[in-house]
Design a protein around this nucleic acid. Structure first.
Length: 313
DNA sequence: CGCTTTTGACCTGCGC
DNA sequence: GCGCAGGTCAAAAGCG
């Protein structure tokens, strides 16, 4: 039984709705050339086709809008989840309450960038007098959540910068060790990074950045033709990368933008380029996701079996 | 040989 | 003041 010949199970998702529009005129031409002698009925059919085309286009547009809304909801939910997780951390640990509260505040204000002073000003003071507590408050702190293989024990978050590990510690509220990194690209760079696996999901690495780099991004100095692509999805900075396990889309949900940029967000989200990129990313992720494929195969095979059984009965 | 990583010791801040 | 826990230091080990 060659089911493969009967059913095409490849995930060639239609991420290019315009393709249909491109093909449609050819179909129309073909039908016109074949049925040229049929007179007025051709015009009626053409009209019906155009009508159908408009209907499908409208449906496509509606689906794209729904997809966009779905993505926005997903991002919002994910943000809330991460926020909830980070807010629950201080309640677990009896100590270091101050750190927990500063982190929460940082999530809301420091990441904003508008409410905090430049860490450069504080970093210059850093050398003269050591006030780690004040630095900690002043330093710009952001968090990145990066999904990795759960089996991968290395606490490496590839963000383009060069980091030197200077410590590792097992913390009380998390069985997985926390690694401490300093930016080694520039000797004077004050930026530090903490990387630890999430308690809830071991496949998620939580990278906490402190301070701002006082040097350009290393990758920006190299050729831009790297395997990593960074772009901004509206207010959500996003980086997509490829590794052995498939594409990884990293969403930095911890950096809300000022209102002025938030206004632009809605405009950019509505733009066809954004929607196209979003659709491409989702289609690519879905088509390469083995679990999604397995679920789809199970669903299809279930339908086939059901169909065969109903034919037998 | 120089740089990075590892890891135990030490420092510091906070809660009791 | 003491104890706990997070953060940092620095010597040793590893690696190219």
């Amino acid at each position: 039984m060659e089911y493969k010949n009967l059913i095409d199970t490849s995930l060639d998702l239609n991420i290019n709705p315009l393709r249909f529009l491109d093909e449609a005129p050819n179909m129309e031409l073909q039908s016109n050339s074949i049925e040229l002698g049929r007179g007025l009925s051709v015009k009626k059919e053409a009209g019906a086709l155009v009508e159908e085309l408009n209907r499908v286009s409208a449906e496509n547009k509606k689906l794209t809008e729904m997809l966009t809304v779905m993505c926005e909801n997903y991002n919002a939910l994910r943000g809330q989840l991460m926020d909830y997780m980070s807010k629950n951390e201080p309640t677990v640990s009896r100590k270091r309450k101050a750190e927990g509260t500063t982190n929460n505040n940082n999530d809301n204000t420091i990441n904003n960038g508008t409410t905090t002073g430049n860490s450069e000003s504080s970093s210059s003071d850093e050398d003269s007098c050591k006030k780690p507590r004040e630095e900690h408050v002043k330093a710009k702190i952001s968090r990145n959540y990066v999904r990795t293989e759960a089996s991968d024990t290395s606490l490496i978050v590839k963000d383009g910068y060069q980091w030197r590990k200077y410590g590792q510690k097992v913390t009380r509220d998390n069985p997985s060790p926390r690694a401490y990194f300093k930016c080694s690209f520039a000797p004077s760079c004050p930026v530090k990074k903490k990387v630890q696996r999430s308690v809830e999901d071991q496949s998620i690495l939580v990278a906490t950045y402190e301070g701002e780099h006082n040097h350009p991004h290393p990758s920006s100095m190299e050729a831009t033709s790297g395997s990593n692509h960074c772009m901004t999805l509206g207010s959500v900075p996003c980086s997509a990368s490829l590794n052995s396990s498939g594409p990884t889309i990293t969403l930095d949900l911890t950096k809300p933008k000022p209102n002025s940029e938030a206004k632009n967000t809605s405009q950019r989200v509505d733009s066809p380029e954004f929607q196209r990129f979003l659709a491409e990313q989702m289609a690519s992720s879905l088509s390469k996701d083995p679990s999604f494929k397995a679920a789809l195969v199970a669903a299809i095979s279930g339908k086939i079996l059901q169909h065969n059984q109903t034919e037998k009965w």
